[in-house]
């Protein structure tokens, strides 16, 4: 295994962890927002942090995950070993890029970020599974 490939795996894994955490926070945000909209926020006590906290931490995780994903893809390009699985990875990366771009431009947040993150994360995971399958000779 070349050193570029090792770096690629390392960055990809790290980004997947960050993006998974961002997704979890997105789900918590969605639940808390739903409870506030339905006015049932006091019905059951919860340990949920404020919407603002969830939003800020989720944004930071998305930025770190996106940078790490970019570096991961960069390593593959440097190794010049583009395979079909990188197509999924590129798509996932593009979705996260759109989220961050819209966030800066319009303050894109909340439920809509959750749906976009779900799509982006599914694509990134699909790329990883594809890569693992190829590694096993599937």
């Amino acid at each position: 295994m070349s050193s570029f490939l090792s770096w690629h795996i390392g960055f990809s894994l790290f980004s997947e962890i960050q993006l998974a955490l961002a997704l979890v926070l997105g789900i918590l945000y969605w639940i808390q927002e739903k409870r506030l909209k339905e006015k049932t926020v006091f019905v059951r006590e919860s340990w949920f942090p404020s919407l603002e906290t969830l939003d800020k931490v989720q944004y930071r995780l998305l930025v770190i995950g996106f940078i790490s994903l970019t570096l991961g893809i960069g390593m593959v390009i440097l190794e010049s070993s583009l395979k079909p699985k990188q197509g999924w990875m590129f798509l996932g990366w593009a979705v996260y890029g759109v989220i961050l771009y819209l966030r800066r431009l319009t303050g894109f947040r909340g439920r809509r970020v959750l749906w976009y993150s779900l799509i982006g994360f599914a694509l990134v995971i699909l790329a990883s599974l594809h890569g693992m399958g190829m590694g096993r000779g599937l």
Binding site: F42, S50, T53
Partner: peptide, 20 residues
């Protein structure tokens, strides 16, 4: 003593559920 029971404290707690 967990849940607020005045309009004032309910409002403040609602604010805290939205803002950090």
């Amino acid at each position: 003593g967990h849940q607020p029971i005045s309009v004032g404290s309910v409002t403040v707690q609602l604010c805290q559920k939205i803002f950090k």
